[in-house]
Design a protein around this nucleic acid. Sequence first.
DNA 1: GGTGTCTGCCC
DNA 2: ATTCTGC
DNA 3: GCAGAATGGGCAGACACC
Length: 677
Amino acid sequence: MLIFFYSDAHDSKDGATELLNPDSYNPGKPNYHPIQDATWKKGENVPYMVLAKTLELIEETSSRLKMIEILANYFRSVFLLSPDDLLCSVYLCLNQLAPAYMGIELGVGEGIIIKAIAQATGRATDKVKSDVATKGDVGLVAEASKGTQRTLSIPVSLTVKSVFTKLTEVAVMTGNSSQIKKVDKIHGILVAAKQLESRFITRSLAGKLRIGLAEQSVLQALAFAATATPPNQSTPPTQLNCFAGLSSETIKAKVEASAVILKTAYCQCPSYDQIIPVLLREGVEALPLHCTLTPGVPLKPMLACPTRGVGEVLQKFESTKFTCEWKYDGERAQIHLLENGEIRIYSRNQENNTSKYPDIISRFQSWIEPSASVRSAILDTEAVAWDTDKKQILPFQILSTRKRKDAVEADIKVQVCVYAFDLLYLNGESLVTMPLIERRQRLWNSFHKVDGQFGFATSRDPQTVEEIEEFLDESLKGNCEGLMVKGLVKDATYEIAKRSKNWLKLKKDYLDGIGDTIDAVVIGGYLGRGKRTGLYGGFLLACYDEANEEYQSLCKIGTGFSDEDFQAHSDFLKNHKIPKPKPYFRFDPSLSPDDWFEPVQVWEIKCADLSISPVHRAATGIVDPVKGISLRFPRFIRIRPDKNPENATSSEQIADLYNSQEQVKNKKTDDDEEGFY
DNA sequence: GGTGTCTGCCC
DNA sequence: ATTCTGC
DNA sequence: GCAGAATGGGCAGACACC
């Protein structure tokens, strides 16, 4: 009787009792069968545990190809059994809720997560907080908390869709007491989640999945899955595994062909809302028909590789034609002109910045060359803060004070000048497969300079090391960061899917032995997260102020260290821990590290710029009466065993370095000149 | 209405 | 942003 | 060389709290 009941409950498949338990789902299984190895039935919503098992397995895997295959197997099952869950599956794998330009934010940080965990487990928030610091991962803390948590009833099973929906619900909560509501909501989700599920739900909320797989591999996995098991099959599906019997070379080639199509579609139309339905309905091959470059939808921008010297630049381009442009220190602005006259502006990360730039919108038409009759276009530009009196570029820090949303043109205090350097779409035609030399010609033909409003990135085609160095120096004098170097003809298209970093950037501070280096004293350490768990993942640095005989916080630092460095620093500094900061440490309490150290070691560090800081205290009273100085893009270079802390860079020297910056000098010079009139 | 803190997004 | 690391 | 994951300064915006 009992036996009959069991076999009836699990019906069709022989010996499938265990397989229907999501806890036993294994997408890493050799010869994975997308239907038989799935632990749910056709038409059902995918249990969230299935996705959690998939993510766990990926997290345990180091080989990228293997990770992709694991995720692809999960997708193959979703294709055939629950295609409606594919979109939310993809979003959960990527830690997204919607395309960036939709502007949907979770509005959840670690603070809220810790509160929710504390609430769900009845523990004090400080206890949870210190657990997070020790374990180095909110997800693991949430998961471990489940072990001690009292479960009054068997939780309702979570599905991929229900988790995604709940996250979206958290995101849309705004306004008064929304924080409490978010905590309550997250509390509710955590109560319903099993251990493993709570690990990944919590990480989703924290915005870091930390499984070693992200956007590129998700696309690769989708391509793999769609090639092995086409999603657009009639029922019952006949093609469960198109790879059976094929050589690995053949498989690789087929997957690569699909991946290029998929990635191209995604780069030109970075919206899974649009791509996934097409993929499901018509397959990979149909993507180029439906997901194409369109004004009004942001595309992925071309990025640049750091270059350690002019030699490297010449080596890369050898005998091919290239051009150099000033690298402006502003904000990427992708300006779209739609056929209906509408203008939209997107950030480097596809955020919709249209309402930030009413000034650009009202001026844009006047930048069009009348003879060119531009009806639609996408420009790649840098928006830079502009001093209208002195007619010069202002620092990035000034630009960043502009209103971000719903700016009103009449109220704008910081003006911008737009420097255009590429044209990706013109009058109904995509230009991305053209070489830069042709795109740039169309850009120059279609628009014209307007002083203080719009211009083309200053460019030159130097040939020798000396000419490049000269142009680099000119760019710095012009308040720019350095140079961008771009091929003009060969491999000079704007095809992000093929190579997303097809340009080079050359900055003074990349060059060994050039740029500002500073010798600073380590006075504190912050416990590392993720792969840095168990060691310090960052440090607080200070400079010595001779006048007051004190150490003043200069910056935190967390990059430039090798794994070996982290181990060595942690080993060394734990012997110099002190329970409290020295009375002669000057710092803002918000920067308090997990551990304080005796000022015993000096590190050479590098930075791109020095800035007036709202929190750091270096050189307070020298450049600014109350504010200190900090560093932009600080990174570790090496230990200076030869230097005593009191011989580290002094606050006066920090102030001198600040004042010697081109941006500061240019400002001062002009201020002085004004004094004459 | 002012201040403090957290979050997301620029670099 | 910069940097390091496994593949 | 790619892709991913560590980490930086600093700003506005959104809320919480007083």
